[in-house]
Write a protein that binds this DNA or RNA. Sequence first.
DNA 1: TGAACAATACGAACAGCGTTCTTATGAGAT
DNA 2: ATCTCATAAGAACGCTGTTCGTATTGTTCA
Lengths: 243, 243
Amino acid sequence: MSPTPQERRAARHEPGAPPAKTRRGPSGGGKKPITVEAIVETAFGIVAAEGYEALTMRRLATALETGPASLYAHVVNKEDLDELLIGRLCASITLPAPSPSRWREQIIGVCDGLREQYLRYPGISRAAFAAAPSNLDTLRVSEGMLAILLAGGVPPQRAAWAIDALTLYVNAHCLEVALAARRGDADQWVIGRDEMLRRFAALPEAFPNTRAYAGELTGGSPGDRFAFTIGLMLDGLVRSAAG
Amino acid sequence: MSPTPQERRAARHEPGAPPAKTRRGPSGGGKKPITVEAIVETAFGIVAAEGYEALTMRRLATALETGPASLYAHVVNKEDLDELLIGRLCASITLPAPSPSRWREQIIGVCDGLREQYLRYPGISRAAFAAAPSNLDTLRVSEGMLAILLAGGVPPQRAAWAIDALTLYVNAHCLEVALAARRGDADQWVIGRDEMLRRFAALPEAFPNTRAYAGELTGGSPGDRFAFTIGLMLDGLVRSAAG
DNA sequence: TGAACAATACGAACAGCGTTCTTATGAGAT
DNA sequence: ATCTCATAAGAACGCTGTTCGTATTGTTCA
C-alpha cells in the first residue's frame, strides 16, 4: 500500500517522524527531489515576491521545474498547501513566557509578530481565513495568547473570545493592506492621501462629516490604525475585567 | 460613439440619470432586456441560494438565459459587478438620526444591520474587502456611523479610526461565518461543539490552557461572539473619550 | 418607403486555473 | 540480473474571466 497524500497529511504532525527517506523516482539523481519542505519553501518565495494571488499550482510546479501533477503526490490539494503555509507561518511566531504585569505589551507583541509575518507574504492572510482552527500550529499561537491574557487577570470567557476577535482582526487588517498594495502596484491607482482628501472635499452635501473630518478619515499609516484597533480591544477588555 | 461599459460605470452615479431607455438588440422583444438592474438582482439571487462562490459570470449568464459575453456590455468585469453588489447592499442599510444619548446602541444597530445583510448573501463579504472605499454607497454608511460617534462625543480621530476597525471586523466576521458554514455543508465536516471539545481535550500537554478552557473557547454562537467584539471596541472607545 | 446607422446580443475562442487519469521511469530489494 | 512499486510527469477534463468578430434589431434620416 502506497501512502496517499491524505495519509501523509494525517501523519505529518505525528511525533515519531521518520527523517524523510529521500526515496527514488524518475530523474532521481537529476537535481533535487520534490519534498513537502521544498514545496513550502518555494511557495513562500513566490508569495513573498509576487503575492498570494500568483501562487498557483502551475506556477509553483514551474518554479520546481516539474509539472502540476507532480505536486499532488506530496500535497492533497491547494487548500492543504494553504494550511501548510499558514501552519509554518504560525510556527515562526515566538511566544513570550506570560508576565502578569506585562500582559498588555505581550499581547501586542504577538499581534505585531503575526502582522509582520502576514505582510511579509502579501495576501496570504486570505488563506488564514479558510484554515481550520484545529491546526496544531495555529492552536499553539492561540494557546500562547490565552496564557498571556489569563496571566493578566482577564476572565477566561472574555479571554477566549478576545483571542478570536484579535486574530480575526489581524487577518482582516493584513488582507486589506495587501489588497490595497496590490491595487497600487497593478492599476496605477495609487491615489495618495492628497487625492483622497480632494475627493472627500468634493463630496455632495449629504456627506458633511466625511467632508469635515477628511483629514482624520484618511490620516494615519496602516500600522497606526492597526495599533489603534488592537489597543481599542485591549482597553475594552480591562474595562470590566478583574485586574 | 457607443458608451463603453467603463463610461457607463463612471456615469452610473451621476445625478441626472436618464431612465434607462430600454433600447434595442437582437431578440429584442423576446423576453426581458438585459439591464444592470436585472443582472444585479439575479446575482443576488444566486448568492443567496448558493453562496458567493457560485456567482460566476457563466452561471449568471445562464440564469439570465444568455451567454457570458452579453454581460460585458453592462458590466466592466466581475470586480465591477462585485462593487455593484456591495454598493447595493450598503444602500439597503437604514441609518438612524444620531441621538447623543443612544449612540452606543445606534452603532450596534448599524453593525447588526450590516451583519444581517452580509449573512443573507453568504460569502459576499469577500467582495467587500476588495471594494474601493471611495464608493458612494459605502461612504454613505461610514458617514452615518461617523455622525453617530461624533454625536456620542467620541473625538474625531478616534471615531474615524474606530469606523475603519468596526467595518473591517464586521466584514471579517461575516466572511468567517460564511466559510465555516460552507465547510459544514460541503465536506460533512460539521464538527459540532462536542467533537470540538473532544479534540481540545485530547490535545498534548503543551496546550494546558486550551484544554482547561475548551468550554470557553468553543462556546457561544457566532452572534454572541460578534456582539462581544463590537462591545469590546465600543468599551475601549469610551475609556478615554470625552463623554 | 427604403437605406444607413448605432447599439445590443451572442457564439466561439483564448489563456489560465485546480485536479485527475494514465503511463513511464529508475532506485532499492530480492 | 530481475522484480517491485512509489515517484514523476504528460495529457486531458471541466471550470474560470475575458475578448473578438459577427449577427440581429429598433431607430433615424433621405
